[in-house]
């Protein structure tokens, strides 16, 4: 239990030196290093947080953008659909118009063709009937037939009403009887007598031969004429033919 005061002094100095040494080599560097590392870690954490926020923000942005894009796409699609609808209707209308135009053109054409055809037919029929009739009448024409024609003419004269008679007979004018063939004197007398009897007494009668009548007798005075000939009949045939074709025309138009 002895205290060596020199050693005590030395130990105090030693201890103070050790305090300084450890402060210099141990506590300060370690504390600083730990502090720096903590700061470093805090910084990293902060950075990570910032980055996360940024990422969140960016994700949000992308989400919004994609939503917007989707909406845009939908709008564009709708617009395109509307446009397509409109276009379709337009095209349909156009097509319809074109079809109706074509149809009307076609109908016009058909009508024209039909008219042409009918005209041709009429002409041909008329011609044919005329030719046939001409040939037949030409072959048949003889005195008997003449007699018959004259009889018919006289019958017609008889059947004339007062008004027609008045229109034919004009004061101071003579009547002309045209015939397709040469009338002999007995027939002429017969006719003259019939005229005198049924139209006017003492009326002057002139006789003339005109081959365009085909076959028949015609009485003419001034502007009016009365007679019986084949040309009139053939005209009637012509009219009948035209009437016969017209119903067909209407039916086709309806179709």
């Amino acid at each position: 239990m002895t205290i060596d005061w020199i050693t005590v002094t030395a130990q105090i100095i030693n201890f103070l030196i050790l305090v300084w040494l450890l402060q210099h080599f141990l506590y300060q560097p370690i504390t600083n290093a730990m502090q720096r590392r903590e700061e470093h870690i805090a910084e990293r954490l902060e950075e990570a947080e910032k980055r996360e926020q940024e990422a969140d923000q960016r994700a949000q942005d992308y989400r919004e953008k994609s939503e917007r894009l989707e909406q845009d796409t939908e709008q564009i699609q709708q617009r395109a659909e509307r446009e397509a609808d409109r276009k379709k209707k337009e095209l349909l209308n156009e097509a319809r118009e074109e079809v109706s135009k074509t149809r009307s053109n076609w109908q016009t054409q058909v009508r024209d063709e039909k008219e042409d055809f009918l005209n041709n037919l009429r002409h041909q029929t008329t011609d044919t009937v005329a030719i046939v009739a001409r040939k037949a009448l030409g072959d048949l024409a003889d005195s008997a037939l003449e007699e018959q024609i004259v009889q018919s003419f006289i019958a017609r004269l008889q059947s004339l009403d007062e008004k027609s008679r008045k229109s034919i007979v004009k004061e101071g004018e003579k009547v002309t009887i045209s015939s397709a063939f040469e009338l002999d004197s007995s027939v002429r007398g017969k006719l003259t007598r019939a005229v005198h009897k049924h139209l006017e007494e003492h009326l002057e009668v002139d006789y003339r031969q005109s081959p365009e009548l085909l076959c028949g007798v015609e009485l003419s005075s001034g502007g009016t004429s009365l007679g019986w000939n084949l040309a009139n009949y053939l005209e009637a045939v012509d009219n009948t033919m035209a009437d016969a074709f017209s119903p067909v025309e209407i039916e086709k138009e309806e179709a």
């Binding site: 050693t7 030395a10 130990q11 030693n14 030196i17 050790l18 040494l21 450890l22 080599f25 141990l26 560097p29 370690i30 600083n32 290093a33 720096r36 590392r37 470093h40 870690i41």
Partner: peptide, 28 residues
């Protein structure tokens, strides 16, 4: 011996501290 062994302890502490703390890392 007291002072001598004290120096030994001082030297040991200082050197080992210095050996470690001369290359301190601030990374993780």
């Amino acid at each position: 011996a007291t002072i001598a062994y004290t120096w030994l302890v001082i030297g040991l502490l200082t050197v080992s501290s210095w050996l470690v703390t001369r290359r301190l890392s601030t990374a993780t």
